Computed example of a mutant assay.
Amino acid sequence: MTITDTTPRVWPACLNCYNNGRLVGQWVDCTDVSDVTITSLHDGFRGPYSGCEVIWCIDHENLPVKGEIGLAEAGRWGDCFEEADPDQWPAVCAWVSSGCYIAEGTGDIPSMSQFEDAYQGQWDSFDDYATQLAEGIALTDDWPEEAQRYFNWEAWSRDLAFDYTVMDAPDGGVFVFRNC
């Protein structure tokens, strides 16, 4: 079994140094970005460092956003990661990547309470989820046997999928989210 670390990280850099051809920065977990300062970024690098004031995250991993982000936004992602169950972080990222999610405030940070409401789990396929749902609500239990036998499960599952967002899971199967 392969264990993959899904902790969101950023590479904050001194923007002045970066713009002047010096790569001054370090990888930091998003949960620890509050400890990043201009001084801490320059530890171990030779100066002079006049004009160094702005920190900008020029790279990231395990975040469902594209491009560069600010240090404050990285910190909000760290807060989100701490609020989420670490095992569910890939599902949180998939939900945001789907574009069919509820953001907290004005940025890309997802509302974790909305995630908990929307997330239906990881399944081998959407059909597996639909089958479990039908059994859980006893969909056909009170139907006559002949009606049960001729019920079109494939069409029902296909129609049910319109109420859900389904995203591929990185380790196989799919994540299922109820549309908000």
Rank of each mutant, 00 (worst) to 15 (best):
E146W: 08
M112D: 07
S97Y: 00
M112V: 15
L133H: 09
D108A: 15
A130G: 05
W153Q: 14
E135H: 05
Q120Y: 00
E154G: 09
D128Q: 11
E146R: 11
E104I: 02
F126T: 09
I102N: 03
Y164V: 02
G136I: 07
A155N: 10
V166T: 03
E116P: 05
A103H: 07
F175N: 02
E104R: 07
A147P: 05
G99C: 03
I102M: 10
A103L: 05
A103K: 10
I137Q: 07
G136A: 15
Q132H: 08
Q114D: 06
Q114S: 06
S113M: 13
A91Q: 04
P144Q: 08
W153I: 12
A147W: 09
W143Q: 14
P144Y: 14
L133F: 11
P110V: 07
I109L: 11
S98A: 05
G173Q: 09
T165C: 15
G172V: 06
T140W: 09
D124P: 15
F126M: 04
G121E: 07
Y164D: 02
D168L: 06
S97M: 10
D127N: 07
V176N: 00
V176A: 00
Y164T: 01
W95V: 00
Q88I: 03
W89N: 03
I102E: 12
P170N: 09
T131K: 06
W156P: 01
D108K: 09
S125Y: 08
E146Y: 06
F175V: 03
P90G: 05
F115C: 00
G105R: 10
D108E: 12
L133K: 15
D124Y: 06
S113I: 12
C100R: 11
A130P: 03
Q122N: 08
W143G: 08
L139P: 06
A94E: 02
D168S: 10
Y129E: 00
G136C: 13
F115M: 02
A134C: 07
A147C: 05
V92T: 03
C100H: 13
T165D: 11
W123P: 09
A138V: 05
Q132I: 13
V96I: 10
F115A: 01
Y150F: 15
D124C: 14
Q122F: 06
Y101E: 00
Y150P: 10
A169K: 03
T106F: 07
Y101D: 01
Q114K: 12
I102D: 11
V176E: 01
A134L: 06
E116V: 10
M167E: 07
N152G: 13
A118Y: 01
F151K: 08
G121F: 01
G121D: 01
G173P: 08
Y129L: 01
D159L: 13
N152F: 03
V174E: 01
M167Q: 15
G99V: 02
Y119R: 00
G121K: 02
V166Y: 00
V92S: 01
A155R: 13
G136V: 04
E116Y: 12
A103V: 13
A118M: 05
Y164C: 02
D159P: 03
L160G: 06
C100K: 14
S98Y: 04
Y119A: 01
A161Y: 05
F162E: 12
F162W: 06
T106I: 09
L139Y: 13
